[in-house]
């Protein structure tokens, strides 16, 4: 079951270049009676009809990941680049990347310790990617300015853990895909958004193309549960189940929807936790404040080391996230039918 999650994690999809991820999802969901539509900004809208005609849940997850865009080919054949999304510059030196349509392999170079004193921190503008070319002409055969790039990481499952890149938010895409595979009385519109990491841009345009009455955003969120000398709290912890966001920097979850989620969890004895930091923002903000303003909330899978080449989440947390959403949908259907 988790194989598709690994496939999604391995997919190429820096913000602004999510085609491969969209295709993976369409392929996976093609036999499930779903209507697809792609927006100009690259969000994939997956509509599934239910018996209940006038009510519909919009569930979002984003397909993009933090990555890079090539900004210059230098005389020595190396490439300069800019970041897409929030990446700690310190993780970049000596990482492998994959670039552009040809999926060219590259290495972020780092001068040797002997010649570059340890107190110096390399700046983004001084980082270069080596692709096996030593002249501008050689490099131009493999890449072009404007090519997108991401970390070259091959994901895997081991010890019940999913290790890989881009779990923020391919793990959300995986959960949403699993939800869409099942049949529901209430209509479901799944939006696999583009460009979340560069300012939730995909959802802003996608919501012009989708109508709903309730909203849910699925995320892969920060879990730094490994150190007790913390800057701030660990945010979430692995193994405690999906995390409900009550408040973050951009939004406050709808209290009734949160109550319904807690009720669903307790009824089925599904473990859950609350996200304990109010940093960062999610697509929930746009669900809450778009034209109609939907009652919406955010639920997340705790992930260690998001926004880096290698992160990790637990299979059990992922499965519990699917279960809690399924039960929430059942409770929501009941509530709607009672009305």
């Amino acid at each position: 079951m988790m194989n598709f999650a690994v496939k999604l994690s391995n997919g190429f999809g820096p913000s602004g270049c999510e085609t491969e991820i969209r295709e993976l999802i369409k392929q996976e969901l093609k036999e499930y009676n779903i209507k697809f539509k792609t927006t100009f900004l690259g969000s994939l809208i997956a509509t599934k009809e239910g018996k209940i005609k006038d009510q519909r849940v919009i569930i979002t997850a984003h397909t993009d990941e933090v990555g890079f865009i090539i900004s210059k080919i230098n005389n020595d054949g190396t490439l300069s680049f800019r970041k897409l999304g929030g990446i700690d510059d310190r993780i970049l030196p000596s990482k492998k990347v994959v670039i552009g349509r040809k999926r060219t392999k590259g290495i972020i170079m780092f001068p040797q310790i002997h010649l570059f004193p340890p107190k110096d921190i390399v700046k983004l503008k001084d980082l270069r990617i080596f692709i096996g070319a030593t002249t501008m002409e050689q490099a131009a055969k493999k890449v072009t300015i404007g090519d997108y790039a991401t970390f070259a990481t091959k994901g895997e499952i081991r010890n019940g853990q999913l290790w890989g890149k881009a779990l923020d938010d391919r793990i959300g895409c995986f959960v949403l895909s699993e939800i869409l595979k099942k049949n529901w009385n209430i209509g479901i519109t799944g939006i696999f958004n583009s460009q979340e990491e560069v300012g939730c841009r995909g959802i802003k345009s996608a919501l012009h193309n989708a109508k709903g009455t309730y909203g849910l955003a699925i995320e892969g969120t920060t879990a730094y549960d490994i150190d007790d000398s913390l800057d701030i709290s660990p945010s979430t912890e692995l193994g405690l189940g999906p995390a409900i966001t009550i408040i973050d920097r951009m939004s406050i979850g709808n209290p009734n929807m949160i109550k319904l989620m807690e009720f669903a969890a307790k009824k089925k004895k599904i473990p859950f936790q609350y996200k304990r930091t109010a940093t960062g923002g999610t697509e929930t903000y746009f669900l809450l404040r778009n034209k109609q303003g939907l009652p919406a909330l955010c639920i997340s899978v705790p992930v260690r080391y998001i926004h880096s080449p290698l992160g990790m989440c637990l299979e059990t947390d992922v499965k519990n996230t699917i279960s809690i959403i399924e039960q929430w949908l059942l409770e929501l259907e009941k509530k709607v039918e009672e009305k």
Binding site: D88, W163, T222, Y224, D231, S235, G280, Y305, I306, H307
Partner: peptide, 17 residues
């Protein structure tokens, strides 16, 4: 297999960046 743990940017204090 293992990985060197890094704190995501969301949780970092500016002075430690």
């Amino acid at each position: 297999k293992a990985v060197v743990a890094t704190k995501p940017p969301h949780l970092q204090k500016t002075k430690n960046k």
